[in-house]
Amino acid sequence: MKTDDVEDVEIHLLLEGVQRIYGYDFRDYADASIKRRLTHWLAESGFETFSQAQAQLLRSRSVFESLLRGITVNVTEMFRDPAFFRAVREQVVPFLKTYPFVKIWHAGCATGEEAYSMAILLNEEGMAGRYRMYATDINEAVLQKASEGVMPIAEMQRCTRNYQKAGGRASFADYYTARYDRAMLTAALKKDIVFAPHNLAVDGEFGEMNLVLCRNVMIYFKPALKERCLRLFDSSLLPGGFLCLGLKETLERRKMGDRYEELAAPLRIYRKRYG
């Protein structure tokens, strides 16, 4: 009896059930990672098998929400990949400055660090008040955290280091106030960011964006779902707009690839061609 094959079938059925009952579609997520996460969730949840979990899952919203938290891993940090943010500052912002007002979409923003990093960067480059950011995620619990803009103080040291490597012009300490073990980001960073739920597997586009960032989200998707996301980003972006992917993601093998030119080669910043 090959138990792992049984488990593959159970996982398949479980994701099918989740899609039909709750409308969340994880069937096109890359199998190795989702299997790891589901197995981890199962071990924590106290159910013995996925079949056993299934019965509860399909009837109890709270069991489903714990599964959702287990499946959507939200690891992020301020100025993640400093070299990337430096390249945005040096090579993308000069183009953005030619517009009176720009719109930016962070797809899969997790707890918001990427959006806040971008706000710091744009404010320092003299674009305060000239942008609106839409930061979206499938997971509403992380969006709630994101909109609070509060981070563990223990992370500030690493953030500060990243900020400096990313070409920060001020002192990172200016951007938060410390209260006990927490760092609260300043209101100036929050005011032009809208946090909203959006599921890349089922929801539609956001219009007329100058810049779309979707970093370390599509690595978890199978090719078909990646293509869906890229179509979504492409129809959201203005000609001459920018698309930023995670450092290990590429447009090379994607249908959309030839509509974009790569701006900063290893940093995965792409520019949509005109016409």
Partner: peptide
């Protein structure tokens, strides 16, 4: 495996990366 990413094997014989904890 690249720095800062897990390296995994997908069932279709392709590689996958993850930024999980």
């Amino acid at each position: 495996a690249p720095p800062n990413y897990h390296l995994l094997v997908e069932c279709d014989g392709f590689l996958a990366l993850s930024a999980d904890p």
